[in-house]
Nucleic acid binder design. Structure first.
Lengths: 201, 201
DNA sequence: CAATAAAATGACCGTATGGTCAGTGACAAG
DNA sequence: CTTGTCACTGACCATACGGTCATTTTATTG
């Protein structure tokens, strides 16, 4: 069924509001984010916000939902598509770094989002955990195949997530000059050196 | 010169206020932290807060100042005291983990503190950077001595800081069961495997 | 074009909270 | 005991902000 003109306009408004909200929440956090400012940024009046979202909290959740879902999905896709463990690690770091560069504002929100919104935290922390656990499974399998050293798969997977996040943050703060590919290569190489059984002398 | 009774009481008040503020800011962040709540937690009236601090921002900064200074100092002491690179890495991870366990509230604030208080950010980011750069120097030196592989010292130092921070966060969130010593040993071992020149097969 | 419906607006309201200050009382000095 | 000082108090104020809704603007229909 074709979209009516109203639906198109409504979709456009909705995403304009989400973009504005992302910008403002990234700048000031949840508690500090001001709805008047979001409305202005979106080019509408404050009252209009309430035609599309129930209130501040729902708006915030809508931003997080959308962006985290996207990040989770693209990470899973690329990690699962990779054939070898090393490629999976490279894929993981690269997707995250690319996302970090492309959607700075969302990553700023992610950093703050450590404890707020306790109600829905389980949901979000699942979305964070899932890709890491896919990595962990691949690591465990590589260990059992004897491809790499005997390491605790889950811990290592989280370590990979941690150094990737750190690299992204340093990029967001303006340090670190190279391309995301270079950064991903470096990270993958570092981790691989820790996993390798016996590098040639 | 001996402290007068007033000075003793004043010191006590001051630190009670700092403790209360740390608790509340850790729970609700800067924007959400309520001065009435801090006063109640400290067992004083709100007006009294203003006898000891100029306002909300100064109070927040006082907490961060005190705790970050302490963390920076204890990290530097222990890292610099360690003789070998491996011991320095172990020292770094261990102090941070110990601090993470002992001062959960401060670390929760740290996590949130990514962009607020832009004025003083340079100050704080120096305090974060300094210990990492001591590590980096030790790594660079070990590289030039041929003790470890040829790695980019600064990057590796930040990677160590990143995995340590991640480990602390997972502990704060209630996952991860072992002692801080076990965790530190694991992290050190992981990093060392990545740095080692040629492990015996 | 008129009539009607739908969408958007922004002035307005209530509440929460950072900050103030006139008043209180505990304590020290004499 | 009296007096003066000063840390302390909490009622109070001003402001900011989330949320509402009567009114206005825009779109649709006949």
């Amino acid at each position: 069924m074709k979209k009516t003109k109203q639906e198109i306009v409504a979709d456009y408004r909705r995403s304009a509001i989400l973009d504005a909200a992302r910008t403002v929440f990234a700048r000031r956090g949840f508690a500090g984010g001001i709805l008047d400012e979001i409305a202005q940024e979106a080019g509408i009046a404050k009252g209009t916000l309430y035609l599309y979202f129930k209130g501040k909290e729902e708006l915030y959740k809508a931003v997080l939902d959308h962006d985290m879902r996207t990040l989770r999905q693209s990470t899973l896709n690329r990690v699962d598509a990779a054939a070898t463990l090393r490629e999976k690690i490279a894929a993981f770091t690269l997707v995250r770094l690319q996302n970090g560069d492309a959607r700075r504002e969302f990553f700023r929100i992610m950093d703050q989002e450590q404890q707020n919104l306790t109600m829905t935290r389980t949901q979000y922390s699942d979305w964070v955990r899932e890709p890491v656990e896919h990595l962990a499974a691949a690591i465990a399998e590589a260990v059992s195949r004897g491809e790499i050293r005997d390491v605790p798969a889950e811990k290592v997977a989280w370590n990979i997530a941690d150094i990737t996040r750190g690299a992204i943050q340093r990029r967001l703060m303006g340090r670190s000059s190279g391309t995301v590919e270079e950064e991903s290569d470096y990270l993958t190489g570092f981790v691989w050196a820790a996993l390798e059984k016996s590098p040639a002398p």
